[in-house]
Design a protein around this nucleic acid. Structure first.
Lengths: 130, 130
DNA sequence: TTAGGTGCAAAACCTTTGCCATCCC
DNA sequence: GGGATGGCAAAGGTTTTGCACCTAA
């Protein structure tokens, strides 16, 4: 894998943004640094970086794919109203994987847990939908 | 809400299919009964049925939206290779929601947990990708 | 030098929507 | 009858891809 200006900038941006950005949000941010970068390049590199484990795709709720610069296993919260994703500090229960694997015969690698509800801003009606 | 042939057939199909079908899979199945039904109708009704709680949207992994005829809260397993979704019988930990809500101040309504790994067929190399 | 990466634009894909005809209540 | 719903097709939004040019190693 070659190190290009574009790929480095994309990785740096995903790591810096704590909001679990979508491809489009990464694109907007990277353009501040490389104005002529193309959206296709952002998509291609997010996929490459996810494959090599340098960023983590955030599964779950929404239609848009989101990416996480923190590749440690941790849980997420997704606001049902504004769609934003937050990290949750609850410790990951790794015993659960082993227990369910033993029960089911499935080869379980990990699990993803996503809480749903309203974030603080949306509870007070400060923010609209995504 | 009016009961139409189409809506009844869609609900019946989602409940009967244990594979957590996508809109397209529901479409294919319903067409065996109502050949001239349109894909738009399937999408419209899946959304209506999800809003009224008669089917449950399955969040998580893939790009495609999947639906579950079983609206009880339960956990899922998604195969990383073939993409199929299976139900997991592990009891849902409802105390987790309360605990995290108390810690974070978020209004947590529920959580979704999805295990990842390889299903039995893909472990033995019987099946290709989705 | 050259395999891999970029930019651009078109294509592909899934989902939603507008419009008019149809059907349920 | 009248409003909700269906069929059809077009639009919409996101993601992928083909191709010619470029660039890091």
């Amino acid at each position: 894998m070659r190190n290009t200006r574009q790929r480095e900038a994309i990785l740096r941006v995903v790591r810096r943004m704590s909001c679990h950005p979508t491809a489009d949000e990464v694109y907007a941010e990277v353009r501040k640094e490389i104005p002529c970068i193309s959206l296709g390049t952002v998509y291609r590199n997010l996929k490459v970086l996810a494959d090599t484990g340098e960023v983590a795709p955030v599964g779950g709720g929404g239609t848009l794919h989101r990416y996480d610069g923190c590749t440690d296993n941790h849980y997420h919260f997704r606001c049902d109203l504004c769609g934003r994703v937050l990290d949750i500090e609850e410790p990951v229960d790794t015993g659960l994987d082993r227990r369910v694997a033993a029960q089911t015969g499935l080869a379980i690698r990990c699990h993803a847990l996503e809480f749903h509800g309203l974030c603080k801003e949306c509870q007070t009606g400060e923010r609209g939908a995504e």
